[in-house]
């Protein structure tokens, strides 16, 4: 599904204050997987995500999505950004926001509207079609952004710290929403977060990145009994163990086990 080989990226290359964001990063993601990427803040997680999305051209290495080299944004790829207030279009109603990307999909107006409605329903926002983003709470706006990505029916969905700007309660709701929608839609999800608990709770697999320049320092399979639940999963011994493991990796201690 996604193959990253020897990726590196330098900002301001050549200048004395050049910044090596990523160096020698290798990663592969299987179809249908939900991969969480964690790392210390400022480690180049977003750079990695933007490279996959074709928003920036990395200075070295290769990224392949479904076997094709990424040069610009691949087909069937959607991104949910952290900052919903700046990624939703404030002048469009919720439904128009969700339906906008469908213009590229050869759908007529009616089909677009239906797809938008369906996507909004699946994120629990049925009936909010005619509202404007500013009339919704932060968590609801992020749901709209997720609905927009879902309606697009991507085979790969990238989420860049999608719950970084909402309160704790909403965050848990949205985590469960992601788990729920990936059950309905067959797609691969790469979710970037700096929250260790979240990565273990949501992911099938957690990849830990080092400080900049980022490379993979840990790759853990998350094998927790499903369906996951905010209370019981989080007290499960495996969860506690994994989370400690990831925590150590993030902080730069060598993995013990």
């Amino acid at each position: 599904m996604l193959e990253i080989t020897n990726l590196s990226h330098v900002y301001g290359g050549g200048s004395p204050n050049a910044h090596h964001a990523i160096e020698g990063l290798n990663l592969s993601v299987a179809a249908g997987e939900l991969l969480c990427i964690v790392g210390p803040s400022g480690c180049g997680k977003s750079t990695l995500l933007r490279s996959i999305a074709g928003l920036i051209t990395p200075t070295g290495g290769q990224i392949k999505v479904e076997g094709d080299l990424v040069r610009q944004t691949p087909d069937n790829l959607a991104v949910v950004f952290q900052d919903y207030s700046r990624s939703l279009f404030p002048w469009m109603s919720v439904a128009d926001n969700v339906a906008l990307p469908l213009r590229r999909k050869n759908m007529d107006k009616k089909a677009r509207r239906e797809a938008a409605h369906e996507a909004l329903e699946s994120v629990g926002l049925a009936g909010a079609e005619r509202k404007y983003p500013f009339q919704l709470s932060g968590g609801m706006q992020q749901r709209v952004a997720i609905a927009r990505a879902l309606a697009y029916r991507p085979s790969l969905m990238l989420m860049d710290e999608p719950f970084g700007s909402v309160d704790a309660q909403t965050r848990e709701d949205l985590e469960d929403l992601v788990l729920k929608v990936r059950g309905h839609h067959r797609m691969t999800i790469v979710l970037i977060t700096h929250d260790i608990d979240e990565s273990v709770y949501v992911g099938d697999r957690v990849v830990v990145l080092s400080k900049a320049p980022a490379h993979v320092v840990g790759d853990l399979k998350v094998d927790l009994p499903g369906p996951r639940d905010q209370i019981t999963t989080r007290e499960h011994p495996d969860f506690v163990h994994l989370r400690a493991e990831v925590g150590r990796l993030v902080r730069g201690h060598a993995a013990a086990a």
Binding site: L55, Q72, F81, D83, F89, L100, P101, R104
Partner: peptide, 27 residues
């Protein structure tokens, strides 16, 4: 124009005309 808006356009592969009319002009 908000850079994230433009990136969103790019991610969803909107055409130039669509970007201009639906995103840049309103901004």
């Amino acid at each position: 124009v908000e850079p994230l808006h433009l990136q969103t356009c790019q991610v969803f592969r909107l055409t130039r005309a669509e970007r201009l009319r639906r995103v840049i002009l309103p901004s």
